[in-house]
């Protein structure tokens, strides 16, 4: 069976299922990042979130992040699943799993992946509050050039 390492899904994500995709005999460490829906942002209460994606391009960009990671950490195995649709507080929005022979690389490569997701994967979130809603943009508060890899 061919597993999909980079996915956009519309239903709940299993952390374990994503993590297991990167297990291999050469690996000695697996880091798993889980992004969940936060209730309060700068004092403002979020009731729920809606994520939308330009799905075919989002999958391509997730795979590109995997390729970038392999260039820096040749032995890394990467799997990323991002959920879209309506999510409630504490629902899992994204899971990134990275395996490497040694733990330091697994931590670093995993952080690289989430930073890149926030720069270039075409996914947007709308926060829904008690008194309104808004599309959130540019979480990094700058607009890095998307084709340029992180230094």
């Amino acid at each position: 069976m061919m597993e999909t390492l980079f996915e956009i899904v519309h239903e709940a994500i299993s952390i374990e299922a994503v993590s297991k995709k990167v297990f291999k005999r050469e690996a000695g460490a697996v880091t798993t990042f889980t992004g969940i829906v936060r209730e309060f942002t700068k004092g403002k209460r979020t009731l729920s979130l809606e994520y939308v994606a330009y799905e075919p391009m989002a999958v391509k960009m997730l795979a590109q992040i995997g390729t970038e990671i392999k260039k820096r950490w040749a032995e890394a195995e990467v799997a990323i699943t991002h959920r879209v649709g309506k999510l409630e507080i504490s629902d899992i929005a994204v899971v990134i799993a990275v395996s490497t022979p040694h733990r330091r690389d697994a931590y670093e490569a995993n952080e690289y992946a989430i930073e890149r997701i926030k720069q270039l994967v075409p996914i947007w979130k709308k926060e829904i509050w008690e008194d309104g809603e808004m599309w959130i943009g540019d979480q990094l508060e700058h607009n890095p050039y998307a084709n340029e890899e992180l230094k």
């Binding site: 989002a58 991002h82 075409p122 996914i123």
Partner: peptide
């Protein structure tokens, strides 16, 4: 063509 506003996934 796709117009891609600043993204906010993750």
């Amino acid at each position: 063509i796709a117009l891609i506003p600043p993204v906010s996934g993750g």
